[in-house]
Design a binder for these strands. Structure first.
Lengths: 187, 187
DNA sequence: ACCTGAACACCGTTCAAGT
DNA sequence: ACCTGAACACCGTTCAAGT
């Protein structure tokens, strides 16, 4: 049932190792050469499985997005689940943001948000879901980049502040979309 | 009145050349070595003026943000001005997003949005302005990255679609913040 | 089908030394 | 004060050749 696997590594396995490297060392240190070394293979071997580093990162982004559960609940709860999927791996938001730009169609994240928005958004739920996703990606990218910027330097007074900004943003977007008030619902 | 300038290049001049290089070739091709070549100088010479490439990019980001006019008008108009400042240079949003993460205090963009928001936002105008800025950075980064992704390949059917998503996002955020309805106001 | 070996054309950064 | 020259430790990608 599993697809042909004659070589030592297939795409799925390589993406898994890449994701582990990403989480441990961050995006700047996720290089084709380090990934190859981790797989005990020459760097050129990766180019049989992936056309380019961008292609590899797109597959990594898809894997990150798979963590998003099936659509369920209101917008705030759904948005938090998308954010948490991005936060689950170091630099997850930046990877998804970078490769989301190349994709034309809707992603798993977009679909979840669209389902939570219903039909009542101004200009269509599709457009509203896109806007919400863009906020989540911008917010989470900023948060994650600040994380290793202050890893051994500045003050780390932001854990609660970030959550407050996120909730405020989603709340504002929710009210503007005319959806049910999430204040009454539990997060 | 101008500060001491014995050498061939000072920080202001270098940032200007870097910004020109950014706009012509994009962020991936804005390297210290190319910048040095453009200035007809050795790469190591740049490290007398800037501590690192990140330091240089932070100065470039500040220069991009200077294009934002003084606070004036409602949130939609202000948000559009911030977006347009980012769009004025290739990859402008990504540069600002990357170096905004390291800055703790509020930027020129944040101040403009905060002024437009008034005092009526839930959780405070400061938090609301941060959320709006994060949406703008996420949105514009996505738009700009898609631009040179499709420069010689896929369909470019997105000029109006992007503006619709942006306006919808700001509109939703505006209503949620309880500010004056921007539909009645002209953009 | 899958990988090696070697090369090409680059990177950011440091540091002694020059002027 | 400002820059050169040379080096260090890397990059992504291609491609003939092996098995």
């Amino acid at each position: 049932m599993t697809p042909a696997r004659n070589g030592r590594h297939d795409r799925e396995h390589i993406v898994g190792v890449a994701l582990d490297l990403l989480d441990r060392y961050g995006l700047p240190d996720l290089t084709m050469r380090r990934l190859a070394a981790e797989l005990e293979v020459q760097p050129s071997a990766l180019y049989w499985h992936f056309a380019s580093k961008q292609d590899l990162l797109a597959a990594v982004a898809d894997r990150i997005l798979e963590r998003i559960p099936a659509p369920q609940g209101d917008l705030l709860a759904t948005a938090r689940r998308v954010r948490d999927a991005l936060l689950a791996y170091r630099d997850g938001a930046e990877v998804v943001l970078s490769s989301a730009a190349l994709r034309p169609g809707p992603s798993r994240a977009h679909e979840a948000l669209r389902a939570a928005l219903g039909e009542s958004a101004p200009g269509g739920a599709d457009i509203a879901a896109t806007a919400v996703l863009q906020f989540i990606l911008g917010h989470t990218s900023l948060v994650q980049q600040r994380m290793h910027g202050e890893s051994h330097g500045a003050a780390a007074d932001a854990p609660d502040q970030d959550a407050a900004v996120f909730d405020a943003g989603i709340l504002m977007l929710t009210r503007g979309a005319g959806a049910a008030d999430p204040i009454a619902a539990r997060g």
